[in-house]
Amino acid sequence: MTNPRYVLNVLGQDRPGIVAAVSRAMTDAGCNIEDSSMTMLRGAFMMIMIITVPMGSENSLRTAMVGITATQGLQVHIDPYPEADEGLRRTVEGVSYSLTLHGADHPGIVAAVTEMLASDSINVVDLSTHVVEGSTPMYIMTMELVVPESVEKAGLRGRLDKLSEEIHCAISLTEIETATL
């Protein structure tokens, strides 16, 4: 049997040494870091890690994380990783596009855009948003999409143009050129 995977969420005030402290604690608990992502959102430290834990060592991981929480002043949350059910697994296939949006910030932009994309069965595989502070806060969103071959591209662009007017944001869609050599 393979070692079980867990998802570790870590957040707190940023300062040097957080990744080192967390990864050392996990290594000492016998865990292996697989995929991870760390970023700063509004100056705060945010990290998600997928880790494998030796069978029967879950408690030593949790003990290590309690130590990290106490000594580093971080919030740590551990959940079992949702392993894909092969029977239900949906393969993401289609053409990759990048979507960029900018406009005056107001509630509902992400919901409006992603609802429209979901209605075409378009998969969002990467998303980041940012508010640029100023006298009129500006909203910037970038997404990577996988668009099914069955979606007619001119029609999609037309729907995005219409949405762009409704939410008063500029939206551009660019195919990501892919080549295998």
Binding site: S96, I176, T178, A179, T180, L181
Partner: peptide, 13 residues
């Protein structure tokens, strides 16, 4: 920018 694949790295682009 372009997204490349390679016959020698078949699982990734």
């Amino acid at each position: 920018p372009v997204r490349e694949g390679c016959l020698s790295v078949p699982e990734y682009t």
